[in-house]
Amino acid sequence: MKEFKEIVVISGKGGTGKTSLTSSFAALEGENTVIADCDVDASDMYIILEPEIIQSEDFYSGKTAKIHTEGCVHCFKCKKVCRFDAINVINGDFVVDELNCEGCSYCFHVCPTRTIEMRDNLSGNFFISKSRLGSYLVHAKLNIGADNSGKLVAKVRDEAKRIAKENDKKLIIIDGPPGIGCPVVSSLTGVDFAVVVTEPTVSGKHDLKRVGELLKKMKIPGGVVINKFDINPEMTEEIKNELDNYNLKLIAQLPFDKIFSDAITVKKSVVEYDNGEIAALIKDSWGKVKTLVNNK
């Protein structure tokens, strides 16, 4: 039995309001929680939470081949076995195209003169910080073009769990990445509940169905927040009708409001920026999420 619960906020489609909602949930919980920003590709949570970094570490993952010119006998074996078109011949020298290299080491194994070296990739950094809300924040920065295979996401989550355990926090809130691929699967594995933020647009509905299928496949219970529901009320109804097919609960529908972008502009979460209808709806949603998680 885990001593803490993990709630992830995802969306399928980007830009539906994941970070706005997650930062509001974080603000409502104050110091009682650990926040994990798993959108390591384009992490934005730190903009709102203004964290002070306590610890920063390099993150190595994967390898890249390096061919030393001395010793190379131009036998072409490496080029022949490479399935990623990563070995070019430039002015007679064999050179690895680092962007194409997958780090599979096949070339290294077939090189008769052992001229190929496999080097570890520095693929990013991760940070453990204290947010201005008093909570811990674990976040990361993936290097440009690095392999986002979900390993850095897994690392961020592991660190968040360790901190939760050490500091006796009962809750981890995860800001997830968009899409349905490796980083998303990595953000979802083993969580207690997923909040899916969507919008009533053709793309929002389409992407929600794909995320719904993924959650069903991974057997993760989830609920849906329909953001900007009044942009297209018919589509909002269509989305609501879909929820049962994926065993998703409706948590809330939020109206379109400039408060969302205004709050971001002054680097505040919505519940800190506003005290009106929208803030009340978000507080209410968070209450519902917690009830759903605890009654699971």
Binding site: G14, D41, L99, G145
Partner: peptide, 28 residues
Amino acid sequence: APPGTSCPVIEAVKKCENTILVTEPTPF
């Protein structure tokens, strides 16, 4: 292209003659 800055994006934009980066005027 897909969103982000990691491998799927690189695969989509490499060797393109031109790339348009779409953004919005918010801190994010």
